[in-house]
Write a protein that binds this DNA or RNA. Sequence first.
DNA 1: TGCCTTGACATTGGATCCAATCGTGACAGA
DNA 2: TCTGTCACGATTGGATCCAATGTCAAGGCA
Lengths: 228, 228
Amino acid sequence: MSGDGAAELAVGVASDRVVAELREAILDGRLPPGSRLRQEELAALLGTSRVPVREALRTLAAEGLVETEANRGAWVPWRSPAEVDLLYRMRERLEPLALEVSLPNLSPADLDRLGELQERIRTWPGVEAFLRLDRELHLAVYAGCTTEPLAGTVLRLWNATQHYRRLYMTLSGPRRHWVVNAEHDLLLDALRRRDPVDAGRLLEGHIRRTRCELARHPEVFDRGVPRS
Amino acid sequence: MSGDGAAELAVGVASDRVVAELREAILDGRLPPGSRLRQEELAALLGTSRVPVREALRTLAAEGLVETEANRGAWVPWRSPAEVDLLYRMRERLEPLALEVSLPNLSPADLDRLGELQERIRTWPGVEAFLRLDRELHLAVYAGCTTEPLAGTVLRLWNATQHYRRLYMTLSGPRRHWVVNAEHDLLLDALRRRDPVDAGRLLEGHIRRTRCELARHPEVFDRGVPRS
DNA sequence: TGCCTTGACATTGGATCCAATCGTGACAGA
DNA sequence: TCTGTCACGATTGGATCCAATGTCAAGGCA
């Protein structure tokens, strides 16, 4: 999870390091939509040759985090309001399933940890911290679901929408933060009661509400000044 | 769709050709689970160097069609009964959504084509033809859903379970084929009525029944003689 | 002036070569 | 006979070089 800074120790396979670095850079906003990803530039930046970079770009393209076109290069894709809406609808259907699979495998200690995360979320901790904690909370709910296709798909849905979640939180701020708290409290209560039906429904509603509020802020999808 | 034989014309990017060839080989059973994918071997077979092959393997790995491990190579993964069960549950949730998105975009001609496919399915046409037509029919239902993440995810779910669908059909044969026909007929009728709710429910039931029947045949998951 | 051509440059795609790692079987010792 | 070690072959990972393609701007022609 940590292991953030100064990964110049060059441990592991280069391609995988490149994938991890790029994924992180895209998710934390350093590479917003529209960013072009030049192979040579990235290779120099990450201290490898272009080969691992190319493999990493293929991987990320298959994940949907970057787009590539033959002989034209790779870049971080923009997403339309309709596409993000659909990504949220997919989450509404898949995440309750992931929860249902996960819940029996969550220990009381796991549930306690969820509570701690929510306590740190409760007092609006700022946009970046909220994004990090909220993501960690939700993904921790699915930690008991280790089956790759489902866990991986859910993760990709989160990744694909991360940028727009950030923009939305930035402009909405803590205004309706109490709603999130209430929803999280109810969700965690249902989890402690080991009730996947109740929890699933709350989760679906939580995602659906977010989708609807996001739909009322189309300015999130405005393409600002293009970045190099 | 066609373009099967003798693709030595070397059109397009080599990596993409390799991806397409491998995907096809895995889906049509030439590369069953357990098959090891040696880079040099594939490169020679497809008339390229190892570089495009490596990129293709990364792509397919991200798609879940192959598994790779650093310094150990790539192979077609086995899937456990629990994993396939979960893949079907994901389909039950996602395909009705894809249908809902797609239906408004399907023309009467598209619906006619679905009917033609079902007519060719009606008289048990043998395992391979059934697999091909059934897949084509279902994916044609979602043809109006062009949004990549959903369409792509649905396609991956189909791809990931193709091998086990084949094994199941092989051993079950035409015995309960009338059920498929009835379900398809009802589904197509609901589509012609432009009723996404009804169609979605029928679709979910269709997938769910398949999942349950598959669950009663664990021998499908037996690992036969390992292939080279 | 406007549009098309053309050429140089930037960038990506592919092939070959070298390095690192893994698996396997032979061999020595207990 | 069993086990641990070592060395070799097989295979994958990475770097460099070359080819192909795309971009873009300058210049010629209508």
